[in-house]
Design a protein around this nucleic acid. Structure first.
Lengths: 196, 196, 196, 196
DNA sequence: TATGAATGAGTTTTCATTCAT
DNA sequence: CATGAATGAAAACTCATTCAT
């Protein structure tokens, strides 16, 4: 049954989110999932595979959240939707988000699942950025750099809110989002104050 | 002699940087440092203390790099110096930088050394941001948010360059830096194109 | 199965009896019990718990032996039965007896299992001694003192026989037992020689 | 200097008396003695030798205490002096006494120092018992048995008082001592009550 | 298919002993 | 002589994995 597999999956995600990858034993997972330790090996070759599958899954979930409705509307609407998707996802205390942050900064990110994730997520953003540059609307920066200046702030803001280092404030986020949008666009006519 | 202690320290940092915190055994450290396993315990109570001391040390190093010369010159000069400090540090493949990224996203960051680090680093930036806001130069955002929109991009850019996802390009960085500066400032007179 | 637990128990008791508590390693126990080292930890939290459980068990066994049939018959019959129970148990080269002597003279006897043992064993003897004193048959000494003069000799004799410092001699023991009985009783009519 | 040797000796005795033989490390001894760990090896070949020497020493001290003034006076006076020597020594919380009780019930008592101790102490008592038997005053029991019925009570009483299981009561001890004396003597004329 | 007891290699940690200073 | 840093073998303990039921 894939039911058991799912149970194991969720149990593992939950433990990683709360206690981290460090103190993660198969017994713990079995207990949390309510199955026997041996059962895990019916669904996953070994611990590495379980962790690997989980990583893939987490990245898939993250990509889905971030890219939700990312194709409708104008460039600006699409950008801002993604920007808020990132903030909203980052704010959550879900296992997916919490374990995501642990995976992302591990040595060996060159690994397969992460490559795929990057391609999926970034492929979509790639299109957005390229379009913006083709229209002469965005600055002529590499996409990675465009992401860094316009979307990393969203990642950081979501995290800060989740960690209670920053209160959730719709107006402040709107302003930040607009600033990010303007950062990548070569806007000349409208003045900054329009947004404040 | 503090020589041995230093050797152990560096060996541990190196291993964490390359293989991560996961597969870190005392024997490995001993081998890398060229000492006997038991020797480590003359300098550190146990593994936890070793890791803890290392964490403190890494955070200290990072703070030093980032805040280098952060008090001289105009607000703009100070901001840009810090911005580039962040990029330059993030670009390095030093053990300090590599292990920093692993520490920073672990569960339990509320711990002591990290608090101190935050206070040191952020205290300095705090002053900068407050000054800018007092002068009416910066947007009225919380400091965390100002950091997110103006300095997180630098963190991300440094990392991307180190990971070869982005080539080091002085001009591109200058532009990005200026964009970040403008993002937090309520500039009206100069147009964006001035920087391109 | 409690089979493994029992195996571990017996192996440990045996090693303590022969080699003492000092050189007692988990590996040794595992070897003697014919199980893997890790298996011990399925049944006992750690070495301390194993030793503690063993201690409790040994004390229980000792109490059982000593108090066997200790309630039937006259005061004299009861006393003498206990006296011989003590000698007989002390003579044995059983692990229970051998490890008992090691536990009993360790620092920290105030610990729980020992308290219980004392209460069990001594509670029974308490009744005996109190009865004897109430009848005006025993000397007015504290029970501990009555034990010391009348039953410690039995402990010592059993031990000496076990250690081959004294041959087992039924007649000699009978005499000694009678002497002990007379020691605690305020006998006036019968002369000592009656027993020789 | 034999001063250092003595320091090490006393430190070891003290630790054994308080914490037992179990948790006894050379470093601990060195700390307690105020010398370096390596220094111990100038005076003792290894840990075994140190413990062995200590054992010998302790047994010597014990023998001295017990046999103090054991040769003066009548048989009765000599016996009673020894009896009280035993009680008085056993009552003390001295390292010598506390570690004695730990040594005495260890496996491997057949070892050299203990043999010598037995010979010294028991040799003296041997004479006493033989004399008593030759005079027809003592029961015809083996010396070990005579010791068991007459002096083991003193050992037990001293220990009980030290452990606060029994209060020190001169009169009670006098009575107990007399009972012990009468236990080994074939007294016919005097009745027991004379002592109460 | 599921279990969970058992394994044993691997990990952290201790500690008697050595040896350069 | 004395030191105490360093050693490394051995101890306690953990945990991924296997396998009989």
């Amino acid at each position: 049954m894939d039911n058991k597999r799912e149970l194991i999956f969720e149990a593992t995600e939950k433990i990683i989110a709360t206690k981290g990858l460090q103190g993660l034993s198969m017994q713990q997972i079995a207990n949390e999932a309510g199955v026997a330790a041996g059962t895990i090996y019916r669904y996953f070759k070994d611990k590495d595979e379980l962790i690997g599958e989980l990583r893939k899954n987490v990245l898939r979930v993250v990509a889905n959240h971030i890219l939700k409705n990312s194709r409708e509307g104008t460039l600006e609407q699409r950008f801002k939707r993604i920007w808020f998707n990132i903030v909203d996802f980052g704010r959550q205390r879900t296992p997916a988000n919490l374990s995501y942050e642990q995976y992302i900064h591990l040595p060996g990110i060159d690994s397969d699942p992460h490559q795929t994730f990057e391609k999926t997520t970034f492929g979509e953003l790639h299109l957005l950025f390229e379009e913006g540059k083709a229209e002469g609307l965005f600055h002529s920066l590499h996409n990675k750099a465009l992401f860094a200046v316009s979307l990393e702030p969203a990642v950081a803001l979501g995290r800060s809110i989740r960690r209670k280092q920053l209160e959730y404030d719709k107006a402040e986020l709107e302003l930040a989002c607009n600033l990010c949008w303007q950062t990548i666009t070569k806007q000349t006519k409208r003045s900054y104050q329009d947004y404040e």
